[in-house]
Amino acid sequence: MPLHLRGTVLPEGVVRDVWALGDRLTFDRPSGPADTVADGGFLLPGLVDVHTHPGAAEGETVFDPAVFAEQIAAHRDAGTTALRFPGLLGDVPAEVRDAPDAPRMITAGRWLAWAGLSKNAGFHTVTADLVTAAVAEAKANDGWCKLMADWDFEAPPVPHELLRTVVEAVHAAGGRVAAHCQSAEGVLGAARAGIDSIEHGMGMPEECVGLMAAHGTAYVPTLTAFARSAPQIKSTARGRLWQEGHRTMIRRVREAHDAGVTVLAGTDSAPFGNVATEVEHLIAAGLPAESAVGAASWTARAFLGLPALTEGALADITVYDADPRREPAVLRHPRRIVLRGRVIR
Rank of each mutant, 00 (worst) to 15 (best):
A113K: 08
H171G: 07
E161R: 06
A134H: 10
G175R: 10
P93G: 10
G174E: 06
H180G: 11
A115M: 11
D91I: 08
T132A: 15
L117G: 14
D150E: 07
G122V: 10
H124K: 10
A133V: 05
A169N: 06
E161N: 02
A133N: 08
L163P: 11
C181Y: 05
P159K: 09
V167G: 09
N141F: 02
H180V: 04
L162M: 10
D150F: 08
K139F: 00
L88I: 08
S183K: 04
D142G: 11
E137G: 13
S118V: 13
R104C: 01
K119R: 15
H124W: 03
L147P: 01
R164P: 01
I106C: 01
V135Q: 09
T165N: 11
V187Q: 00
A149Y: 04
R110W: 12
V158M: 08
A128W: 00
V92F: 06
A102D: 04
P100Q: 08
G174M: 01
S118C: 11
P159I: 00
F123G: 03
G122H: 13
V187I: 10
E95W: 14
P156L: 09
N120C: 12
A121I: 12
V135G: 11
G90V: 02
I106P: 08
P100K: 08
D152E: 04
V170I: 01
A113Y: 05
G189T: 07
T125C: 01
E154I: 15
T125Q: 11
V96L: 09
S118R: 14
R176I: 00
A178I: 02
K139M: 07
V187E: 07
A173G: 03
A102M: 00
A140P: 12
S183N: 00
V170N: 06
V167H: 06
R164Q: 12
N141C: 09
T132Q: 13
L117W: 12
L89T: 07
A179G: 14
A99L: 03
D152T: 03
V96M: 11
V177C: 13
V167K: 06
V158P: 10
P93R: 10
V167L: 05
P156A: 14
K139C: 01
A155H: 10
E185W: 01
A179W: 12
W144S: 05
K119T: 15
M105H: 02
T107S: 15
D152R: 02
V135D: 06
P157Y: 13
A179H: 13
D91M: 04
H160T: 14
E154H: 12
V96F: 08
G174V: 01
A99T: 06
D142M: 08
A149C: 02
N141M: 01
W144L: 11
T127F: 03
L188T: 04
V177P: 13
G175C: 04
D98C: 00
L162D: 06
